[in-house]
Design a protein around this nucleic acid. Sequence first.
DNA 1: TATTTACCTACCTTTACGGTTGGTAATTAG
DNA 2: CTAATTACCAACCGTAAAGGTAGGTAAATA
Lengths: 137, 137
Amino acid sequence: MMISTRGKYALRVMIDLAENSDGGYIAMKKIAERQNISLKYIERILPPLVKADLIEGVHGKGGGYKLTRKPEEYKISEILSITEGDLAPVTCLECGAEPCKMHAECRTLPLWSELNKLIYNYLDSVTIADLMRDMKS
Amino acid sequence: MMISTRGKYALRVMIDLAENSDGGYIAMKKIAERQNISLKYIERILPPLVKADLIEGVHGKGGGYKLTRKPEEYKISEILSITEGDLAPVTCLECGAEPCKMHAECRTLPLWSELNKLIYNYLDSVTIADLMRDMKS
DNA sequence: TATTTACCTACCTTTACGGTTGGTAATTAG
DNA sequence: CTAATTACCAACCGTAAAGGTAGGTAAATA
């Protein structure tokens, strides 16, 4: 398994924000209810998205969250990278990874590279807009 | 991350067996040395492959391991499925998984399905023979 | 009979995931 | 000014898996 619930939830939250946007801010509580995610858990998922400027959050009454861009401007890969860290299928390909000693002679590395490319290309090609209700085939 | 060292090692072992085959049996120790894997750890990786009939193992002096088919008859997906269990990118798509409550309304499920198909199609299309030295581009 | 080999069981340490508890800080409505 | 509403933050916990080690037993052959 590769994508944890954190990533899945983050994606669903982003879609929820896109679908239910009326220009104002949407309270965490509302999202949690609609998406059937515990309020306390969702509380731990949103801050990184704010920090990365994917969404905006304001305190106090009438506050909540809002997208900072148009839905079609969010690549899925971008969102998942934030919550999941690295999407590489093997540790050998992760960003900060120390190069494997077998690197030069490894017969499997090309396989993993190709797979990695495949995954990224796909997740780069899909946006939040593609996953919204009214865009559903 | 998605593929653990067990899967990576299993693959390298299979390739090693294919490359160094002379018709006889190859001792675990030799593979471990060549592949730079601890003997004790490799010992835990091979039994499942024997059980699944991907390789054959014989006891005693002169014993060891041997492939049961030709290298081009091993799909990568088959080997990884044995050591890794399930290759699905999200738990929702794993075989024995209880269907998610949001299943019907989930906007992200189609994304995961498509990604899953992509991964499987690729790993189905590559064989051990494709990863061997003399076949390397 | 001794040696070589596969095979098996149990354990250990570290990491992560999924989640809860119990708050604090900012903003606004009254 | 106060109370309500909201985002935000830090610490903890239980479970499971990953990666690996230790110490054996069983089969086959020289």
